[in-house]
Amino acid sequence: MAERGLRARLTGAVLALGLLASACSSSSDAGDGELSAVDITKTAYQVPAVSLDATTGESFSLTESTEKPLTLVFFGYVNCPDICKMVMSNIASALTRVDEKVRDDVQVVFVTTDPARDDRQALAGYLGRFDPTFVGLTGEIEPLREAAEGFHVAWQKGKKLPGGGYDVTHGTQIFLVDGEDKVPYFWKQDTSAAVLAEDLTLLVKES
């Protein structure tokens, strides 16, 4: 219950930053030809030109290394007990539902909010359970915070857990980065694979 309370307060804080400035259709509207993502095109965030350490073993820039027309970015951590697994599973499932052309135009990037534990190896093992093509990013705390701030994502280390370790509270949106390194849309954590697949198909057609 305490964990859910922390996540609820964090979500409220993120929403207060203006993530819901634009109205959107319900996520149950998949298949009607309209996007179900939250539209923030009027206040689209500019992706920070920060470089992090990628699971590929190379430096990865959120602006220079995102070469595909669409990039999905999610902030989370390997030891996340529930939401991160659900979101990453839904993203992976969505990409199995779309045409090959759509899949080829989408890159998925997972940015850790727990760099103390999430090194390249930990991220690679974690993301490999969902899709080995997903790119994981880690690094020093300051560049990671700079990246998070660019997406208006709040995150902080929580209290120690009874069984050891600790929790990390963080924003749970799936962000879309376009070819101009802007973030025009995001999806909520409970967006289904079917809805995400429908939206990605529409967005690739428009790109």
Rank of each mutant, 00 (worst) to 15 (best):
G31S: 07
R117I: 12
L123K: 09
G139R: 09
P184T: 10
Y77H: 02
L10Q: 11
E100W: 03
L70C: 05
E3A: 08
L127V: 13
D131G: 11
E142G: 03
S192N: 08
D32Y: 08
G12D: 04
V47Q: 05
A54I: 05
V73W: 02
K42M: 00
A2D: 06
M86P: 00
Y45W: 03
V111T: 06
Q107W: 00
F110H: 05
I174K: 01
P115K: 10
L62M: 10
P69F: 12
G128Q: 09
A124C: 00
D119T: 05
N90W: 03
T43C: 08
D32N: 15
R117Y: 09
K205T: 09
S22A: 13
A21D: 06
G33M: 10
Y77C: 06
G12T: 11
T201H: 09
V195K: 13
G31N: 07
R120E: 12
C24G: 14
L202C: 07
A116N: 10
M1F: 06
T169F: 08
A2K: 11
K42Y: 01
K68H: 05
A148W: 12
V106G: 02
E149V: 09
G57R: 13
A124H: 04
A94D: 09
E64D: 08
E34D: 14
G57M: 13
A13Q: 14
A94E: 11
V87Q: 02
L70G: 01
L176V: 11
F151V: 02
V168F: 02
L123R: 08
M86F: 14
C84H: 02
G57D: 10
S192K: 14
L15K: 13
D167Q: 07
Y185R: 05
E64P: 01
A54P: 04
P132F: 01
T63A: 08
V102D: 03
S192M: 10
I141M: 04
I91W: 06
K188I: 05
A193F: 07
F186Q: 03
N79E: 02
L72I: 10
V108C: 11
R97A: 15
L35M: 09
C84Q: 03
H170S: 08
V204H: 09
P143D: 06
S51N: 09
T71Q: 05
F110V: 07
S51F: 06
D32L: 10
T169L: 08
I141V: 15
A148T: 13
D53A: 01
M88W: 04
A147T: 11
R9Y: 13
K68I: 04
G76L: 04
V98C: 02
E34I: 15
R145N: 15
R7D: 13
T56Q: 04
I40T: 04
F60E: 00
P115T: 08
T201I: 12
V135A: 07
L17P: 02
S51Y: 03
L62V: 13
L19G: 14
T133Q: 15
H152Y: 08
A124S: 10
L200K: 06
T172L: 13
A194M: 05
E3K: 12
G18D: 04
R117T: 15
A21Y: 01
G163W: 06
E142H: 05
Y45M: 14
